[in-house]
Amino acid sequence: MDSHYSSFIRYANNPIKEDVNMSIEKVRQLMVEGEGESASSLVQELIDKGTDPHEIMDGLTEEMAILGEKFEKFEVFLPDLMVAGDTFMQIMDVLKEHLVARDTDRVPATVVIGTVKGDYHEIGKNIVGIMLQANGFNVVDLGVDVDPVEYMEQARKNNAEAVGLSALMTTTMPNQEEFIKLLAEAGEKDKYLVCIGGAPTSPEWSERIGADLWSFDAFEFVEKLKAALNR
């Protein structure tokens, strides 16, 4: 059965539902194309007509996850993710006031991320942030050149479940270790999942400094984090 025929059958069976599905499909398309205003208008229209905002939200989250998978295969690239992510946030401005927590909803886990002190490389950290958001995490991005104390304060303030420290230079890797030492001295080593990454880091380095999680890249990181936090 070709897709047009199956669409027709579904439409014939439930025309109103199919209209909603098509509209959500349109919102997803507009999000990918970065058409924030059009997407937001359409979302408002759908809500005014009584569409469940969770249904729209689920569609958008699914689309971001698909984009993430395509990015991992280099079928799309970072700008595509950034544009879609930015539009997603614009749509959320319309959607969020209509979203009421469902019984089945879990509170999203918060992850504090940043590039360590002395290091100004942020692309890897940014990709991690986008991929985490696409997978439903709440992300607190501290930017670059982040002092170990700042990581700790932000982890406490945001009740983070995990802290991600990126280092792209061998001379800034010690600041990953410094954060872990600070946590241990404060008796908070077991409070957060400490995750490290960056080109010069390795599983051996991770083990040596007592990090909880190391990953080769952003994609592996998200998978490992989901498994570690049971998400």
Binding site: F71, F74, F77, L78, P79, D80, M82, I123
Partner: peptide, 8 residues
Amino acid sequence: IFGGHAGG
């Protein structure tokens, strides 16, 4: 960076 901010 291939795959980074520039794209493909």
